[in-house]
Amino acid sequence: MAAIGVQPLEALDRRAGGRRFFRRPSLGRSALARHEAKWGLIFLAPWIFGFFAFTLIPIIASLIFSLTNLSLEQTQPLRFVGLDNFVRMLGDHTTWDSLAVTFRFAAFNLPIAIVVPFVVALVLNSRYLRGTGLFRTLFFLPYVIPFVSGVLAWQGMLNLETGWVNEFLRMIGVQNPPNWLQDTTLIYPSLAFIGLWGIGAGVIVNLAGLKGIPTELYDAARIDGAGWWASLRNVTLPMMSPVIFYSLILGIVDVLQYFLVPLVLYNGTGEPGGSTLFFNLLLYKQAFNFQNYAYGATLAWLLFAITLAITLIVFRTSRRWVYYAGER
């Protein structure tokens, strides 16, 4: 019997009693096709409109803005300034300082943001853990609370004078507990700690990945004498590599756009000592606080270029370390 894949379409049609299984798109071919295509477009129209109005046109507009002197505070008339904003941006030490802040924090936070949800998911996936449903709910629960509320709650908990963390440290004999949110050496650990509040979604994604690993692979590994560590290294990690890759890409994009926590905690001042003046915060302040739309748009394009470049590099490396079971 010939394989289905090599049978002509007509043969398949005959088996289906003349009803076609496979049909090439035939836009505009017949009255019915035209009718369906028309209604398809009509139903797509809201999305297409939304995409143009709220995504594509603003993207193009921001590129145009970056080539002008547009500012709501401006006293000069609007004019085309070429690449002046880009030159100014590259010559502005604040640009480089804020990029350095962003990369320093990324180097610290990204591994935590990827490893911790993975480890938590491993624990929640363990057959030895009782009450997994409860734990899953507890880990996911903070994710559904508005993040700003969470940040404010953490601000209170990490307060030097009355925060619960320092109250606890004093209780166990630490005379001078640290000023978590104002000490430049502790600020990134504190921010990463606050970030862990919202790992619920990451845990769920990792857990779904873990649940998808065929148990036969673990059985086979066990028969071959593999222990927990060998199973993790040789089965779990390769099978989870697409999920880890996904988390890494999202993590990179998230950390390059890191913004909300320093805005809420420090009102966007960059305190302590400029250590929280993240690039995206600088962009926001320039565009919306200082109303320098042209310069803000220029910064946005730099952020886009950096994010794209890093993402492409990571995609390029993924061929070497991401394993897709379905791939040949």
Partner: peptide, 20 residues
């Protein structure tokens, strides 16, 4: 607006004076 970011409510220097 930008100058106010240095000296206004929650501004950089007021925060620093109160914390350092």
């Amino acid at each position: 607006n930008e100058s106010l970011g240095l000296v206004g409510s929650g501004g950089k220097y007021l925060t620093e004076f109160g914390n350092k």
